[in-house]
């Protein structure tokens, strides 16, 4: 019972740190996936009096990924019944060229503005429709969401670090006596602190396994899948190799650091 209690507090602190790290990772992935979605559905319309080839269009900005010319036929078709075919042909000839630009990623408002200005600098381009109003509000919403999550993760991290500092003091009290006694009989520091490091490593392993179980369960849960499909994104919720390796590394680093701080802070009894 006492042994379980010894492990419990550090394991809880470590699991909450790992939880906040993984939640932050998931949110980052979701935002990236959402941005990709937005980028694929977002485009800029360019109106030009002269025909512009794809190479020239791409030279305006590295942001431009794909250029497609919009065919005005389907608009003209709708006027077909009311206008004389000869006039229609004339209209077709006088219509400017319409281009749809797909971008490499979801741009920032500044990138949109710069690209628009670059395009408008060309004399033949008469109009650029960047849908800036819609774009700006979506982008701001994304940034706000990201900031909120960052603040949430950071505050969780800070609270957990405070928990770990408290744990450090308890451990110092718990292990100081044993380390002092061992020192009085000539034990080198690695031997007198071996129990401490063993405890730290065991706690890190327990915390990593608990996080693995928790996130594996969540990644297969129907509720999570449903939420992601609502947003229309597909992400790796928990990579059982890479994410687990990162979480284990963090847990091991923190618990060994805690043990090291105790060893450094240890003072021999006089």
């Amino acid at each position: 019972m006492k042994s379980i209690r010894n492990h419990f507090s550090l394991v809880v602190a470590l699991v909450s740190i790992l939880f906040s790290i993984q939640v932050f990772t998931i949110i980052e992935r979701s935002i990236s996936a959402y941005k990709e979605n937005l980028a694929s559905s977002y485009s800029i319309i360019v109106v030009s009096q002269l025909s512009i080839d794809e190479k020239t269009m791409k030279s305006f900005s590295s942001l431009v990924d794909e250029v497609s010319e919009l065919n005005p036929d389907h608009v003209i078709q709708r006027l077909n019944t009311k206008i004389d075919p000869k006039n229609l042909e004339l209209l077709k000839l006088t219509l400017p060229n319409f281009y749809k630009l797909k971008l490499t990623h979801f741009p920032t408002p500044t990138e949109v503005e710069n690209l628009t200005n670059n395009l408008l600098n060309k004399k033949s381009i008469t109009k650029v429709e960047n849908f800036s109003h819609n774009h700006d509000s979506t982008f701001k919403l994304l940034l706000l969401f990201k900031d909120v999550i960052a603040v949430f993760s950071l505050s969780m991290f800070v609270v957990t670090i405070l928990l770990i500092i408290k744990e450090l003091k308890i451990w110092q009290f718990m292990h100081n006596e044993r380390m002092s006694i061992m020192g009085l009989f000539g034990a080198p520091i690695w031997l007198s602190s071996a129990v401490l490091f063993r405890l730290a490593i065991v706690d890190a392993i327990i915390a990593s396994i608990l996080s693995f179980i928790l996130f594996t369960y969540l990644s297969t849960s129907f509720w999570v899948e449903e939420q992601l499909s609502y947003i229309g994104i597909e992400i790796i919720f928990f990579d059982q190799v890479m994410d687990f390796a990162i979480l284990s590394g963090v847990a091991l680093f923190l618990s060994v650091l805690l043990a090291l701080l105790i060893v450094i802070g240890h003072k021999e009894e006089v």
Partner: peptide, 29 residues
């Protein structure tokens, strides 16, 4: 540390490791 490994110390307050059995305490040196 090397010197202490060749000394046996008995303290008035015993200085036994509480979380170890008495057998393991005796084993310490």
């Amino acid at each position: 540390n090397f010197l202490r490994r060749h000394i046996g110390i008995v303290f008035q307050d015993y200085k036994l490791i509480k979380e170890w059995t008495i057998e393991k305490n005796i084993m310490l040196p």
